[in-house]
Design a protein around this nucleic acid. Sequence first.
DNA 1: CCGCCGATCTTT
DNA 2: AAGATCGGCGGG
Length: 206
Amino acid sequence: MSITRIDLEGDPVLVAPTLLGAHLHVIDGSATERIGRIVEVEAYKGEADPASHAFRGPTPRTQVMFGEAGHLYVYRSYGMHWCANIVCGPLGTAAAVLVRAIEPIGGRAAMYEDRPKAKQDRDLGSGPGKVCAALGMTGADGGADLLAAPSGRIWLCAGNVPSEPIVCGPRVGISVATTRPWRFWLDGNPHVSYPRRPNINPTSPH
DNA sequence: CCGCCGATCTTT
DNA sequence: AAGATCGGCGGG
């Protein structure tokens, strides 16, 4: 858990793989610290990306994405789940990285309480809706600054360099721009969603 | 393991 | 009317 600065200023397609292995910390309502190691992400390129919520410009919902890098964009999915994105820079672009899966590192008992259907650890955070439930993040956390000192409720911390290879493939669950290989995950990690999806040579996500 | 489908509600 | 999902069910 080094305090290495995390650079979120660039193209989300380039930033996304660098977030693999980073740790997301949340202090929940019972003062328990929950920690998730990011093992799967997707890049969304704002107004340049038909699959991005920000494709048609800023709205009340997507306003955070046009703001400072390092803040949290949380949205309601299918009326019942929360999903969390890390906003990237530069200011004025609506780039963001969706956190699709975490590996539970700390606060597992609390995660199980908020994920009553989970039977084993890999059920806790293997999907974007599960991530928010396991870590206890909701719409109320939208806009939170993840790069502030670890004094807030939620923060992001560089982890160790992942031992697993980074691979990429098409993004999941969208109906437009479906072929861009902007989903990145740690190959073989059991906490990834849809581990059987095809992957692509990680060297050339464009 | 895989595919289908319903839940539930915000956003456009 | 569709959606950056999840989990239960049935079949192979």
